[in-house]
Design a protein around this nucleic acid. Structure first.
Length: 865
RNA sequence: GCGGGCGUGGCGGAACGGUAGACGCGGCAGACUCAAAAUCUGCUAUCGCAAGGUGUGUCGGUUCGAGUCCGACCGCCCGCACCA
């Protein structure tokens, strides 16, 4: 590279060596001094709000953080240069169990542990040179934040969005807390990995189910969200339409004259052979005076909830002796069973069983020898005994042999509609829409969370705390020597007076799920230190988040809760209507991965090794003592597998710019990126080459006239267009590829000094979102005005983007055979002539007649023979 | 089981339906060195001396033209999962 730039006959100054450890702190100081990243409401500028999902303060940043925040930073810096007033804040998702676990394991206090971690992580993030407005920093564990959350909780209570109920909950026996359904993964606690048990407790809930339909429908408007995330949310909300109706019962306990059931296949009503209720159904409880039933129900409860167990779980049932009358024929009675596979919290917790057309019912009926009667058969088929449930697509027409409404030959869809119409016309049932989405249980029996601001009074019941008494602060004097919630056993905190009647009362000791904290932090960033949850003018100006960036693992929980919370905040007057969908665009980035290095100890157990302890050679990977190491392909960085790279090591070895550039290069941002030592080193070498190139151009005589000015100018503008498009399209890897090309073009050029200087200043500006520090050095060395960070983004001149002549490939029958160079606006007819006269074309045609000739202007010529 | 995604060199990956493999890594060769490192230059899908042929998981289809669109299959990944 660089052979053509005149050797220093020079006048200009030479640049010192590329030393990131020298220039990076220097430029960060310069940015701080100029307060360039402070977000200001500016009525004259369009605003742009970039947000990366805020981190949990574990104490150490990892490469995933570096990638996430660099992406956001590239967007933020580019938008700022393009003239937007940018909000790019950072905060801490600081409540949660690890702090309590640390307190239990090592002593100390969750608050001290958390605040210490925040200090440490912030110190690790600072050297990255992110364009963050740190004056807006928030931590969810600070009263300034959670006090406002409590105020909103009270507002939500008033609006009927909060309620309390007894519920069978997922109890994590290790963390001794309740988990939301969303926090149970394969029947295990998402954090503790312990098998979850079922318990009945009084819990606080948010009425997210009020918004099921809206949260589903509004997904269509989220056009800048990944399709995948929208689908996952739609599936999670799980809309279904069906019929709800009641059976009249025979021989049921008092108060159970009717049994409500829900079905999505009312067209199969004539195939009913039993009714079944959940073990948690009120009727089952009413029947528990029968010891056999009590015993059976207990047996159902015990069943594990792990994925394997559910999948292989045998369907078990118990015939209660109660019977129900078929709605279409009162003389036809069906037995009522309690069955372990009926869920209490979906539909009505009771079903009618149609074994012929439901796989579960079929299995159940086969086991307990219940009738299996087909309602419909495939077109043209006989009504023969079934060996498995016949469940065709609802869109497929089938022949109804036991239908009761609609045509004999109709699709399932049509039959369902006809059946619902029939039920409504005859008054025995109604069409109902059901959702899988349950209300959000937010009670946690933990200390390190936002206290639920209510008080239990013997005379007044459950009363909200007065707003002037907020925040309800967590007491500091707690201990963690025994499991459970220290708030429960706090000597004084629990005791308080009723805000209503001033009688002695008890404070609620449940705290909120940490997902509540992260459901509105994006709104708080618009006025992070206000005495109210939000401030209207600030929320109006800054909302919505224009670009949200984070991991796909939050596709359902966090994003769904946030969408709900924004609606709740609108309802309680804390957000404008436009903010009910708070994230205009969402980008889900991939993970940073690394190879895993494994050996085996004497007992055959795996031993993992850190990347820095591995020596790679042609022979493979070994330890320092020569032991051969097994190399396992890249996986998510994990401390237990020791395949971690500490960003701090990278920064001290190569600088922040290298780390930032590397995590953005090579891999498309939505995909995983593999961290390799050679890749990081190669990045550093590249940046050093850019530095050297800058130095060489600086040494050139200022008045040197060279050749190829026009060409370099065109390359410069092409780079502007392509890099800009890459960044704006979240194709950072392509933007970086174009920057490599542009760098090579400059290095090869022997243009005049002035054109070269302009080119390398442009290069610096285009690199600055990715590598802001080296960009500043180049910018100032080459005489750029002010800070590169504050310089406007260059605009490509369209006239310089098109070449005067274009190279057209010529295909014969779709195969490339020749190419011609023609003026870009040459007419198709002239192109045809030149193409057919081309000697290669003539040779390949060998006199065959041309059947067809396709000329795509500026693109290609295809000759068909 | 249901829903979704993805298969391109040794590797990460480019490619409005229009020259497949941009750019980077790695590798090879050369220059500079007494030598090495660093740096620079060139080459690097594959078969073939060449002309040329073959190539984007497999098989078909649409098209003047398919990595890209359609159908079937194979493989991998992700999400949900007894939701009536």
């Amino acid at each position: 590279m660089g052979g053509v730039i005149p050797a220093p006959l020079h006048k200009g100054p030479k640049m010192s060596r590329y030393e990131p450890s020298v220039i990076e702190p220097k430029w960060q100081q310069a940015w701080d001094d100029a307060q360039v990243f402070e977000a200001k409401r500016d009525p004259l500028k369009p605003k742009y709000y970039v947000l990366e999902m805020f981190p949990y303060p574990s104490g150490r940043i990892h490469m995933g953080h570096v990638r996430n925040y660099t992406m956001g930073d590239v967007v933020a810096r580019t938008k700022a240069a393009q003239g937007y007033s940018v909000l790019h804040p950072m905060g801490w998702d600081a409540f949660g169990m690890p702090a309590e676990n640390a307190a239990m394991e090592r002593g100390g206090h969750p608050r001290d542990w958390t605040e210490g971690n925040i200090t440490e992580m912030k110190a690790q993030m600072k050297p990255l040179g992110l364009s963050i407005d740190w004056s807006r920093e928030i931590a969810t564990c600070r009263p300034e934040y959670y006090g406002q959350q409590q105020a909103m909780f009270i507002d939500m209570m008033e609006q009927g969005l909060v309620y309390r109920k007894n519920a069978v909950v997922n109890w994590d026996p290790v963390d001794m807390t309740v988990l939301a359904n969303e926090q149970v993964i394969d029947g295990r606690g998402w954090r503790s990995n312990a098998l979850v048990e079922r318990r009945e407790l009084t819990q606080w809930f948010f009425k997210i189910s009020d918004y099921s339909g809206e949260l589903l429908e509004a997904l269509d408007g989220l056009t800048h969200w990944p399709e995948k995330v929208r689908l996952m949310q739609a599936n999670w909300i799980g809309k279904s339409q069906g019929l709800q109706f009641a059976f009249d019962t025979v021989g049921a306990p008092a108060g159970f004259d009717r049994l409500e059931v829900y079905t999505t296949r009312p067209d199969t009503l004539m195939g009913a052979s039993f009714a079944a209720i959940s073990p948690d159904h009120p009727l089952a409880k009413a029947l528990e005076s029968d010891p056999k039933i009590a015993e059976f129900v207990a047996r159902c409860r015990k069943g594990g909830t792990s994925a394997e167990e559910i999948e292989t779980a045998e369907k078990i049932g118990f015939d209660t002796g109660v019977r129900v009358k078929h709605p279409l024929n009162p003389d036809w009675e069906l037995p009522v069973w309690i069955a372990n596979f009926i869920l209490m919290d979906y539909g009505t917790g009771a079903i009618f069983g149609c074994p012929a057309h439901d796989a579960r019912d079929f299995e159940f009926a086969t086991k307990y020898r219940l009738d299996i009667k087909s309602v419909f058969v495939a077109e043209g088929a006989e009504d023969a005994p079934l060996t498995e449930a016949f469940v065709p697509m609802k869109s497929e027409p089938v022949h109804y042999v036991r239908g009761f409404s609609g045509a004999a030959l109709q699709t399932g869809e049509a039959a369902v509609a006809a059946a619902i119409a029939h039920a409504e016309a005859h008054g025995y049932g109604k069409g109902v829409t059901n959702y899988r989405l349950r209300d959000w249980g937010i009670s946690r029996q933990r200390y390190w969370g936002c206290p639920i601001p209510v008080i239990h009074c013997e005379t007044c019941g459950v009363v909200a705390e007065k707003k002037e008494n907020l925040p309800v602060e967590l007491p500091y004097d707690v201990t963690f020597d025994i499991p459970g919630n220290p708030l429960d056993r706090h000597p004084t905190w629990r005791n308080c007076t009723c805000p209503n009647c001033n009688a002695p009362a008890r404070r609620e000791t449940d705290t909120m799920d940490t997902f509540v904290d992260s459901s509105w932090y994006y709104a708080r960033f618009t006025a992070p230190h206000a005495k109210t949850p939000t401030v209207a003018e600030d929320a109006d100006y800054w909302m919505n988040v224009d670009q949200y960036i984070g991991g796909i693992e939050h596709a359902i929980l966090h994003l769904l809760y946030s969408r709900f919370f924004a609606r709740a905040m609108f309802k309680t007057g804390h957000l404008p209507a436009k903010a009910i969908e708070p994230f205009n665009a969402l980008f889900t980035q991939g993970m940073v991965t690394h190879e895993i290095y494994k050996t085996t100890d004497a007992n055959g157990r795996p031993v993992y090794h850190l990347p820095e302890d591995i020596i790679r050679s042609d022979a493979g990977a070994t330890l320092a003592d020569g032991t051969l190491v097994e190399v396992i392909p890249s996986a998510k960085m994990s401390k237990s597998k020791k395949n971690v790279v500490d960003p701090m090591n990278i920064i001290s070895a190569f600088g922040a710019d290298t780390a930032r550039w590397f995590v953005m290069s090579d891999s498309p941002p939505e995909r995983d990126v593999e961290w390799t030592a050679s890749g990081a080193e190669a990045t550093f070498k590249h940046l050093s080459r850019v530095w050297a190139l800058c130095s060489r151009i600086g040494e050139m005589p200022a008045d040197h006239k060279g050749e190829g000015d026009e060409e370099l100018l065109r390359a410069t503008h092409r780079a502007i267009a392509e890099v800009t498009a890459g960044i704006e399209g979240f194709a950072f890897n392509k933007a970086i590829a174009k920057l490599y090309e542009f760098t090579n073009a400059i290095a090869r050029s022997s243009a005049s000094t002035s054109v070269l200087k302009e080119a390398i200043r442009t290069l610096a500006k285009l690199m600055s979102p990715m590598t802001p520090h080296i960009a500043e050095s180049i910018w100032s060395f080459q005489g750029g005005a002010g800070l590169c960070t504050q310089a406007p983004w260059p605009k490509a001149d369209p006239a310089l983007l098109v070449d005067d002549t274009v190279t057209l490939p010529i295909q014969i029958n779709g195969k490339r055979r020749a190419e011609i160079s023609v003026p870009k606006d040459m007419s198709a007819a002239d192109v045809e002539k030149i193409a057919l006269a081309n000697e290669d074309v003539v040779r390949f045609l060998a006199g065959q007649p041309v059947k067809k000739l396709i000329v795509v202007p500026g693109r290609i010529v295809n000759v068909v023979v």
